[in-house]
Every structure is written in structure tokens, then in C-alpha cells.
Design a protein around this nucleic acid. Sequence first.
RNA 1: GCCGGCGUAGCUCAGUGGUAGAGCAGCUGAUUCGUAAUCAGCAGGUCGUCGGUUCAAUCCCGACCGCCGGCUCCA
Length: 649
Amino acid sequence: MTPPKSVTVRFPDGTEHRFAKDTVLSEMLTRTKPPWKEPPVALKVNGTVLGLGQPLSDAASETDPFVIEPVFFASPEGQEIYRHSSAHIMAQAVKELFPSVKLAIGPPIEDGFYYDFDLGRPFTPEDIEKIERRMKEIAAAHYVFERKALSKQNAIRFFEEKGETYKVELIRDLPEDEVITVYEQGPFTDLCRGPHVLSTRHVAAFKLLTAAGAYWRGDERNPMLQRIYGTSFPTQEALDAHLKRLEEIKRRDHRRLGKDLDLYNVMDEIGPGLVIWHPNGALIRKLIEDFWREQHLLHGYDFVYSPHIARLDLWKRSGHLDFYRENMYTPMSIDGIDYELKPMNCPFHIMVYKSHLRSYRDLPLRYAELGTVYRYERSGVLHGLLRVRGFTQDDAHLFCRPDQIEQEILKVLDLTVFTLKTFGFDDYEIYVSTRPEKSVGSMENWEHATAALESALKTKGMAYRIDPGEGVFYGPKIDLKIKDVLGRSWQCTTVQVDFNLPDRFNLSYIGEDGKEHQPIMIHRALMGSIERFFGVLIEHYAGAFPLWLAPVQVKVMPITDQQHAYADEVAGELTRSGLRVETDRRNEKIGLKIREAEKAKTPYMVILGAREVQRRKLSVRKRSGDNVGELDIPSFIERLNNEVVKKSV
RNA sequence: GCCGGCGUAGCUCAGUGGUAGAGCAGCUGAUUCGUAAUCAGCAGGUCGUCGGUUCAAUCCCGACCGCCGGCUCCA
């Protein structure tokens, strides 16, 4: 046997060492002691991420010297490995406690991991506790994650013998010549590509969070498995910080804040997914809508209004009945004719277009409407304001000539960025969805329109990702997603080119050449749905709406009833200057009044005692707790009006 | 829609096979007070709905409705 070749290894600090190629990475680290503040989760060897239990020779490529980079927990790769190992520990615990369980998959996810099990019954909260306790024992047992390679045949046989039918199904889907790897940790073996941490003891702090049903491979025709979610961190402190963040997320939940701040309600008596806006929420909505209208007038839109129902024939012609049926409600019969609740506004806007003969000189036409639509959503997906059955789109339809597409998209992007920025959203993801398999419209049209979308984004310097084949059947689109505090992405803005409706409704304009041409139609919504946008806004601001949106902007608080006359005078002046003011005339201590104004997240509190009356001043306190100090009435009004005009976030 | 958990006063929640409690909010009274809770009293509930078991159900069982966490889909 020839002795294993040795290689030169270079660390990030430039130091080089020689090692036999079969040296295991952990041993290499013990011998070289690199000056890292924390131990790495894994190492990158010539760019390949390897577990510390693997030898240098597992690197996918060889360079001279071998280049080593540490993979720390802080990196996405490090977290993936760490959480993946955590999932394996959970699987071992479950397998030991419930030997009949079948294992499905257990990947790391953002902020944690899960594992799907087929147990034949759900896990109870007590089960979860037991599993977590067992996991602690497994971690303490210091089982080493050992990597083994098997041929596909052997791997199938191995898991068949164990009765792990899901694993067998997974392996069968792998390519024929693929080398299958499994990881052994003590008595437990799992199919896994790896890599893993060195041993179970390296997973220091973890917590199981929830159990939920999940279909095998996410397909509802498949069996329902039991999923357990958990998370893990290298230290207890980091785990605690994460759990604290989860609490914070709960605190910002728009459903809780919606109730606390009396913004809106969804009531059993009215129906699921149907929102009533209470005065506070309605006022904020009105302000948002005012802003929207003002901006649309400035940007060359025309406003239109349309009814909530229309003849079924209209929806047949638009194609919604064919392509959108599962989201539409049952038609109602009126005087023997079927009518349908609208799931979209577009057919109405098209009818406005069709009400006249159009010249190329008329284009582009931009019809905008805050149009309320109704869509059937399965009961399980309804979620506060973020997913409802009746909602108002800030909808608009642009009709333009093919050569105007790009210019129109540019204008839409400008308005979008301005709108989102006004509400403090600077962070979003942009997707361009291209032609799906099943589509209408010529290839040429698709290419032209897709190029126009991309070119507009490039002109604006907006980074985007391509979602290949994810376009709607009728045209390419740009979607813009904002992230809420939970890290969930919500699609708000959407800009969609439509080759279908102009065709179905036989839209035309008379061109320069005196002949009929078909206009391009673009659907667009900036906030998407007012309900959803409002929900995201509540969480985004944690209920503390900026001054221009706050339902009550100033709370005037006399300390005793000796100051009531002055308080009324102050409140009157503020109100006349256009501010939304309330006076707390209750016979309560100032501490309580402040506490309640804080809870209501009122931006400014004006405190009036004998001192202020005497000096004709205001003591101003912000909801942040900042004491602004004494101001006279005109300078306070000026200060607030400035803030309102600027729409400061 | 599917899997699981939950549904008790306006809100947050406790509780029991013998028809229910707390805190906050509300009402009444006292207190006139300086930057996140003054004190006392009163009132408030067909225990989600319907059915079953039982001498007796808010509690046990079933169905339905809704909410919450997921699966899938979208604004």
C-alpha cells in the first residue's frame, strides 16, 4: 500500500502546513491551532464546505496549496450545517422514543430547522417536551457524526430493511450512479448529504417550537406527516436572544395591535376574511387613500369607479370564468340574469376604454380605481389583514402603444418607489417573471414586453431576479415584495403586461396610418391591497404610526381641572391649525393620562399645569419618552406641521 | 380544504360532573394630583353553536362554526 500523499495547506492568515491527505480536519485544527475567536462549524477546503469530521481528500478539487477558510456559525452555510445537525439529533430522539416512527425529511430553514415524521398520530405537547429532554441527553452523549458512502443499491437495501419507506423513495429519485452518503451518530443512521458538525455535543442550545401537520413533499394528495419545528444556536445567550425576538414579533403582530389600537376587526358574525374598519383604522386608511389619489393625479392618471357585481357574461368574455373560477364566488341571479361578484377590476376599466373610439394620440390612458374585489380563499389560509376574502386594490390599468411600454413602466416604478419610501419601505425584493409553458400572445410580444420590463428596471438601477416561467399566462410581470418583521415576504406591488384581455375584448386604437391597432394593456397595483398594506404597515411601525398618519396626533392633558379652560383654548388652536387633537379632561393623575396616551401610541402629549397656564406655554412630551420641553403654541404648531408635511417616518 | 391546538365578562386569562372567578376596561363616589397605573363600591357571562351521555354538562362524547400554528396558493 502506498502511503497517502501529503499536501500543503494554507490558512487565511497565510501560514502553511503539510498534512497527509487523509488527515481529518478536526485533527488538523488541533495540531495547527488557528487564531480564531470561535471554533468554526466547518471548513471550506478549496471552496468545498467539509465537515470537521471529513478528511482533506474529500475536497472536490485539488489546488496547490490547499486553501482553507473557516465556516463560522455567523455565515449562512455555518447555520445550515449547525441546524441540519440539530435536526438529526431531533430525529434520533424521536426514533428512540417512538421506534415505529418513519423519517421523512429534516432540513435547516431560516432561523431553525424542522423534521417531518410519520407517526400515525400527532405529537402532543408532552411528546415535544420528552423529545427535547432526550435531545439534551443525545447532545451530552457526544456522538460523533460519521460519514459513510454507499452505492444506491446498498442504500436502498439499508433503508428498506429499516422500513424507512420515505428515505427509500428519496434515494430512488437520485441519479443511478450517485454515491449516497449516510451519517451515523451513535446508534442512529440517517440519509444525508451532509456536512455536519463534529459531534452531537457541538449543538449547544436548542429549543423545539411547534408541531404542525405537513404533507409529504408538500402535496396534499400525499400523506400528512407530523412536522416539528425547532431552532438552535451555539450559545444559550444567542438562543435566548432569538426567543426574545420571537416575543417581539408577537408584540408587533398586526392582529394584536389592531385590537389594542382599535383599528379594525374581523368578526365571526360578519364572516371570515371580511374586514370592518373601526374609526382609527378608517382614518389612517383615508389618509393613505388621500395620499394615493394626490399622487395619481400628479402622475397623469384618471380616476374611474366601477360596480361590485357584473353580468356573468362579462366574466366569460374576460376569461376569468375559465381561468379564475376557483377564486370566484357563486353567481347570483337577478331578473333571470346571472351576476357575479367581481374578483378583479380590469373588465370594467376595459369597458371605459371601449366607450369611445381611441386614437393613438389618446394613448397612454391610465385608469385608476381603489376597487374592492372579492376572492374565495381557502379557510386555512386566511390571516388577519394579510390574507382576506374582500379587499381593495389600488388598481390601475394602462393602455398604451407597444413603443410606450418601457416609458410607462418607468413611470410606474417611479411612483412605486416614491410611494413605498413615503411609508418607510426601502427594502424589498424585485422579481421579473417570464413566459410560462402555457401562455397566450406571440413570442415576439413576450420578448418585447419582457425586455421592456427589464430595461426599465435597469434604467432605474433596481436590482431584480428572474423568476423563469413564473409569469401569468397572459404576460410577463414585475413583482415587488416587502418583508414584514416576521421575515415573511408579502407581495404588494405588481406590474403585469396583458396580451390576453385586449384580444378578448377586441381593443383597438386608430394609428397614425389610419388603421386599427391593438393597444398594450398593463395592470398595476402599488400597495397591492389596502388591507394587506395596512397590515404590513402596522407591524412595520409596531403600531406607532408617524405623525401624518396617527389617528390622534396630540393629546392635551391638563393636570387638574384648574387648567381645563387653558387646555380647551390650546386644543382649539391646534385643531384650527389642522391637527387631530384630543383633550383628556378626566379627573385622573397625569401619570395615568400619560400611560394611556403611550399605550395608544399618540405621537405628542401636551401637559398643562399651573406653570404652563401662567407662562402661556406648553410642556411637550413625545411618545418615545423624550421630553421636548416648553414651547409656545405657534412654535409647537409649526414644528408639527413641518413633520406632517414631510411625512417623516 | 387538510393536520394539530384553542374558543369562559369588552380585553387578557384562571377554573370545576352539582348551572363560574381574577386583573384591566365600564359605571358610581371620594381624591385636584407634574411625565407609564390614586382609592373604594357596583355592575357585567344562555362558559362558540347544535346534538348526545348523565339525576345533573361550561367540564365527558359527536357534529358544525370560528380563531391560532403549519401544508398549498395569492393582492
